[in-house]
Simulated scan of single mutants.
Amino acid sequence: MNKALPVRVLFVCMGNICRSPTAEGVFGRLIEDAGVAHRIVTDSAGTHAYHVGDPPDPRAQKTARARGIDLSRIRARQVVVEDFASFHYVLAMDDDNRRLLAQICPRSEAHKLKLFMDFAPEWPNREVPDPYYGGPNGFERVFDMVEAAAQGLLADIRRRHLVDD
């Protein structure tokens, strides 16, 4: 990979209003704090078009705000095939969405598709659960999981792409 180009990361869940915008916001804050935001581009999308154009769920925004992260600028969009060529990492929040992504992923880009929690091997859960139908504790748990995976993702990006930093 050309070291001058930014590393591009796409977080994907079902509707792009809970988990993936949370991951986008958490990771965005992490790379800002680490001083590498100029080298990494983040985005989020959903496998379904249920909420296209909508802001993140108010409960996700409230949880993020309580931790100093603003998700209000994010708007839901649906993932498109071109995303696989545009992004270096396409990270699904769960196996169902990973399978849906695999159905549209060009074979040549399949190496980019992973579960986000693969970057948090210390967590026993391999999937970030959908908090949409749960209470506020579900959003807190998702946030904790996302923070752990975000740390691992940044370490992976540093090792693989930002070795000169």
Results as ranks from 00 to 15, higher is better:
L10A: 11
A92G: 10
R39M: 13
V128D: 03
L100F: 09
R107G: 13
V12D: 01
T42Y: 13
Y132Q: 12
V26L: 11
A49I: 15
H48D: 14
M145S: 05
V9R: 01
F119I: 06
D130W: 12
A150C: 04
F84D: 01
A92E: 06
V80I: 13
D164A: 01
D165Q: 10
A64C: 15
A92K: 08
L30E: 09
G68W: 02
D164K: 08
A110V: 05
L10W: 11
R59S: 03
P124A: 03
V52G: 05
R141I: 10
A85M: 06
M1I: 06
N16T: 10
A120Y: 11
M117D: 00
V163T: 09
V79I: 03
W123S: 14
S108Y: 11
N137Y: 12
D54C: 02
R77P: 00
V79F: 00
H51M: 11
E82Q: 09
P121L: 13
D94H: 14
E140G: 04
V163F: 12
C105D: 02
L10S: 11
A148T: 15
H48S: 15
K3W: 03
D70R: 09
S44F: 11
G135I: 02
P131R: 02
E122S: 07
L5Q: 13
P136R: 14
S108V: 11
K3C: 01
F119T: 10
R19C: 07
H48V: 14
I17A: 06
N16E: 01
V36S: 08
H51L: 09
R65K: 15
A23P: 04
L10P: 00
Q103N: 14
V90T: 09
R39A: 11
A49S: 14
W123K: 14
H88D: 15
I17M: 02
F116V: 02
I31C: 11
S20I: 07
N125G: 12
A148K: 14
F143M: 09
R107Q: 13
A150I: 08
G15F: 05
R107V: 14
L101M: 00
V26Y: 13
M145N: 04
E122F: 03
F84R: 03
K62G: 10
I31Q: 10
L113A: 07
L91E: 01
A60T: 03
N137D: 15
D118R: 06
V163R: 10
G135D: 15
R8W: 05
N2S: 09
R65P: 10
R160A: 15
P56L: 08
I40S: 03
W123D: 12
R39C: 08
A155C: 01
H51D: 07
S72H: 08
C105F: 12
Q61W: 03
R39N: 09
R98W: 03
R160N: 15
E32Q: 11
G46Y: 05
R65Q: 15
Y50F: 07
E32Y: 07
A45Q: 01
D95Q: 07
Y89C: 02
F143P: 04
G53S: 12
P124M: 04
D94M: 00
